[in-house]
Amino acid sequence: MSLFEAIRNAAAVVLVCTGSFFFLVGTLGLIRFPDFYSRTHGATKCDTVGAGSILLGLALLRGLHADVLKILAIISLVLLTSPTAGHALARAAYRTGLRPWTRLVGGGGGDAD
């Protein structure tokens, strides 16, 4: 294994680990946050970064190959659709009258759970 390959593999490992970490954090947010709106925060941001990071690591691992273009297409798709999906969800919640949880009202607003 050449030095170049070693560095490339190390970078890929770091990227995949970072992505996995953000996926874990997004999931913890999905479980821990007090209401739907804050859960959406965690899900949209952490999942975008998590997916992007892992896919970037895998693209790096593949090297110069046609598959890399497909993986980059998936990354840009995730960057584009993830916030839009989050916004669609939040808007539906807002328009159907779900109130956000606040520290003042505590469990009174939204759906503290």
């Binding site: 953000f22 997004g26 913890l28 946050f33 949880w101 520290r103």
Partner: peptide, 19 residues
């Protein structure tokens, strides 16, 4: 943004005050 959410989630006191 993701790092910030991570900080909030991993903090056991969950220091958020949504508006």
């Amino acid at each position: 943004a993701a790092v910030l959410v991570a900080e909030k989630v991993l903090d056991p006191r969950m220091p958020i005050d949504p508006v």
